[in-house]
């Protein structure tokens, strides 16, 4: 598997090579919003870091507390730094939040199939993110911008709950200043400081300047948001096999053995987390799958 040099595998005899977290040290912590933070980690054992594809995830272990799957949100061209952004939602992310620079976490991964950034070359790209769904898409954006000439128009549509919840705000403002990238941000609820769009992210789709017949859409956010985003893109004329979504399910192993992440016949951890909408269409709009 990409990014896992053989010498780093600690085979404890259970699930070969993939069951033992490897040591990473927290080098920097950024408090992005009130409940969201970004960890910049460095491998304790491998100077080359962790090679990954945009959209892949790791299992993060906090000593004695537990393990959670988190998408990688750093730059795939800079694997020496492993970057994860998360929100405090449970015991493990809560414990992660309490860690300090210099503390160690365990990493297993990278796992799963990422965004189709290579297959999408030559097309317009429309990236649609809701809330913290921007984190798994950021590596794809880094890749797209690093290989800017290979793509047509690139559009980023981002929705957050309130202006204070906007993730990677400085980076978004920087990107918004570029001439080769369209960035539109909207919030569900504005405040006195907000002069931008108000409304759900899907309202940005109709007037977005991409060619629906020659575009690839990358979507990540709450399932309900992704559902409406797909509808808006379909309405604009996009083909379903050009639409990609990143799914989230409970995960324990990351390698398709524990059974937890099943979505119909798919294991989100190994067949995903990024799926072509085409492959999920019969289940995506059904409840409690």
């Amino acid at each position: 598997m990409a990014g896992l040099p053989e010498k780093d595998l600690v085979d404890t005899g259970g699930i070969s090579g993939m069951i033992a977290p490897r040591p990473f040290v927290i080098r920097r912590i950024e408090r992005d919003t009130a409940d969201t933070f970004t960890l910049r980690l460095k491998s304790g054992s491998d100077r080359n870091g962790l090679h990954f594809e945009p959209g892949q995830f790791n299992m993060l272990y906090v000593f004695g507390v537990g393990e959670v799957p988190l998408s990688i949100s750093g730059d795939p061209a800079k694997p020496q730094f492993l970057v994860h952004t998360t929100r405090v939602v449970g015991p493990v992310t809560g414990a992660l939040h309490r860690l300090k620079t210099g503390d160690m976490v365990g990493i297993r991964g990278p796992f799963g199939k990422g965004w189709p950034v290579d297959e999408a070359e030559g097309n317009d790209i429309v990236v649609i993110a809701g809330g913290i769904g921007l984190a798994p898409l950021r590596p794809a954006l880094y890749h797209l911008l690093a290989h800017r000439k290979k793509y047509g128009r690139i559009v980023l549509l981002y929705g957050a709950r309130t202006p204070a919840d906007i993730l990677y705000r400085r980076e978004l403002e920087k990107w918004r200043a570029r001439f080769d990238l369209e960035v539109e941000v909207t919030v569900d609820r504005g405040d006195e400081s907000w002069w931008g769009n108000v409304g759900v992210v899907t309202t940005l789709v109709p007037r977005s300047p991409f060619d629906p017949l020659n575009a690839v859409a990358l979507i990540c956010g709450p399932e309900v948001m992704m559902r409406f985003a797909v509808m808006a893109l379909r309405k604009k004329g996009m083909n379903i096999d050009d639409i990609y979504v990143s799914m989230e399910r409970n995960m324990k192993c990351g390698v398709g053995l524990c059974g937890h992440c099943q979505f119909g016949p798919k294991f989100v951890c190994k067949n995903g987390p990024v799926f072509s909408y085409e492959t999920l269409k019969n289940l995506f709009n059904k409840r409690e799958i």
Binding site: A20, P23, V25, G44, G64, M104, G106
Partner: peptide, 20 residues
């Protein structure tokens, strides 16, 4: 039930051990 690994903490770091 099957133990997958054990870990021992040393200050801010920890080390994994296998007992399979």
């Amino acid at each position: 039930r099957l133990e997958l690994w054990q870990a021992a903490r040393n200050k801010r770091a920890f080390e994994l051990k296998q007992k399979q």
